[in-house]
Design a protein around this nucleic acid. Sequence first.
DNA 1: CCCATTTAATTCAACCACTGAACAAATAGT
DNA 2: ACTATTTGTTCAGTGGTTGAATTAAATGGG
Lengths: 419, 419
Amino acid sequence: MGTVWHCQAVTSANIAGAVRQGSLRELNLAVVLGRIATADRPPSRAAIAADTGLTRATVSAVVDDLIAGRLVAEVDPEPRTGAGRPARGLRLAADGPAGLGLEINVDYLAACVVDLAGAVRHHEVRRADLRPLSPTEALARLVELAGRARAAADRLGLTLAGATLAVPGLVDAHGLVRLAPNLGWRDVDVPALLAGHPPLTGTVDGVPALTVDNEANLAALGELHAVPGTASFLHVSGEIGIGAGIVLDGALFRGARGWSGELGHVPVDPAGPRCRCGGRGCLETYAGQEAILGAAGLAGADLPADTAARRLADLASAGDPQARAALHAAGTALGVAVAGVVNLLDLDTVVLGGGYATLAPWLRPPVATELTARVLTAAWSPVSVRAAALGPESAVVGGAGAVVRRIVARPSGWLGRRE
Amino acid sequence: MGTVWHCQAVTSANIAGAVRQGSLRELNLAVVLGRIATADRPPSRAAIAADTGLTRATVSAVVDDLIAGRLVAEVDPEPRTGAGRPARGLRLAADGPAGLGLEINVDYLAACVVDLAGAVRHHEVRRADLRPLSPTEALARLVELAGRARAAADRLGLTLAGATLAVPGLVDAHGLVRLAPNLGWRDVDVPALLAGHPPLTGTVDGVPALTVDNEANLAALGELHAVPGTASFLHVSGEIGIGAGIVLDGALFRGARGWSGELGHVPVDPAGPRCRCGGRGCLETYAGQEAILGAAGLAGADLPADTAARRLADLASAGDPQARAALHAAGTALGVAVAGVVNLLDLDTVVLGGGYATLAPWLRPPVATELTARVLTAAWSPVSVRAAALGPESAVVGGAGAVVRRIVARPSGWLGRRE
DNA sequence: CCCATTTAATTCAACCACTGAACAAATAGT
DNA sequence: ACTATTTGTTCAGTGGTTGAATTAAATGGG
């Protein structure tokens, strides 16, 4: 996919771009900023030099650039034992660039602002049934939210460096929403419709200010952001459909054309019930929201995802046998599908997100059972199954986080933006 | 998604190494060599400069290093129209470093030598039933083959820069064969057993001279090598078991622990027949060699993979209805499993390899049918299904190719090897 | 046939960014 | 106060790219 910095595959084949003179500094800016971002306590220049193998002189020069560009700030030295000149700690600036995350979903709109360090500095959710609205109307309301987020960022001294919009549907490489069935959208050109709304239009140093992405993908990124420990996992978003975000080595895997993650249509039983996709026995017909609600005796409720999950969870914790059986059946089907994925990709962690996060107490046991039974390598390296750390905010936060993550990965773009 | 670039994680691999002074040249060596390797006709220095954005001066300097290190050779200018001094073409050297590929399988041993340009310069297959032999005995025979390959390389003026051994089983990161069920191997430490056999022991500039890898993985690499066009595909190896090699963006995906590709145990029907892995209804119970032979009325034949495939193909082309039905059923099951994979990973190509390559004429239709029916994005971007270009040699050639590919990706290692 | 034109490759001074060592700054211990 | 110790900066030195000028080798027109 790409130009200079594409998502790197397992082999570090850096043959993408030529290395010009200035690339050296460009790369070292990224190296040093990366260390500052991933360190658990503010590191000193000397510590970074020791870690990276660069000279202290080089690190100092690089850090000067980063501070001048408002990406890094110095903090007072933390009390330390032993002799020697005290180190000045370095951390990501809390008043530099920030990312704007936006989300359009079936029953709410959301916006949030995340600073370089990953802290959520502003967050607003507005509930409303979006289905009766046209894309233009829905986006108009989104622009309002974005405006308020921008104002909040200004008050906080933050500069919005880009925005990411999460949509529950298939999005192509240009931000065109090919299909968002639950919103009733088809071929909606979001960037074109938003043209003229300042924070969401144009390009920032060659990068479009607004990126549109699938909700499940961004939710997976949000989880990566919230729990930085695990580098490879499968994030399953249980909503009306079932999406999966695949994170490999700390990077989202998007597939050959960017439409990876359609876990909902992985076959569970080839002779099973007919699915709206045309296949038979897809996971969605067993563990989709409609299927679970139907099995639990709540058919036809037509609830938004989180309400449905909440109600199921209430019933299950009250001991309702039908609800529990429904969840057990769904968890088993989910386990079968996920076992196939884990066998194929050899992942060690499965995260239950979206509506499944709420239902995790009842879904986890059957999922884990199937994984233990069906995953070939489960015997000597067990697969862990856990609920998502962030709840439904995962996608907005993940989207905003993706913006700042891009800056951290390639700070030269931000530093050279004025020229 | 949005656009061309990918959201990169902070923990991504390319911030791992600091960029020191010499890295500049190191990277540009890789960039220039990469262009020479991937160009369809020998490019000139000027063309490389124009392509990469480097100066002609820099390209000349880099090319001088590459020629001095016997990685690149000049060829006579090809007749060209128009005025101007004729360009001197550059191509990968045919007398520089080469890769040694080795394979141990149930019924044969193989060795081959591949030069930098990817040409197979030596190839030897020795048929023998390996199952009654101990690992030590089997490896002793392999060492003989390797010795002859080395002699052949010497005669051709090639220097072996490393070796890769393909094994039909699970291999860990250190070359330990955890389990090779069809060979009857368990926890066989191949590098230790080969210690003392010169081309297969020790390290070459930090990289072990011998790499051991799963046969299915290497077969996928061989296919990538043979048909360089497709960058992302699923390579399915139908042998006694069913393995898959996943190639994403031109690189093999190995999973979190290196055990990806267990397609044989992806569930096809959760209530299906019990599988030797402990699960139920795994793909292997429908499309494994034993299952197909049984359904075709050849149960208990205990044939080596390619013989079995050959005999089935003969029966099917003779019109035998039982064989055809067996292949159709296997293809359908395979299609169901692969549809799940394609939905999840969004791949656009599926390659039928190993024994399946021979059976492709009968397997392809049902596989394609299932994919069309079950893959969500099939409507607007069809998935192509084809037989492997290389037959059973895929794995040896892929292994040897992996050695030279590593040199092309990081030529500085080879160039600096003497010091 | 000679010379202008064109494209390829090399040479060389300039420059950018890293290197290594020396030095200044700031603290703890004696 | 003095030394040991660690941090951060300054500065000459160097590797490698840059850009322009130069040489090399062909075509084509007069």
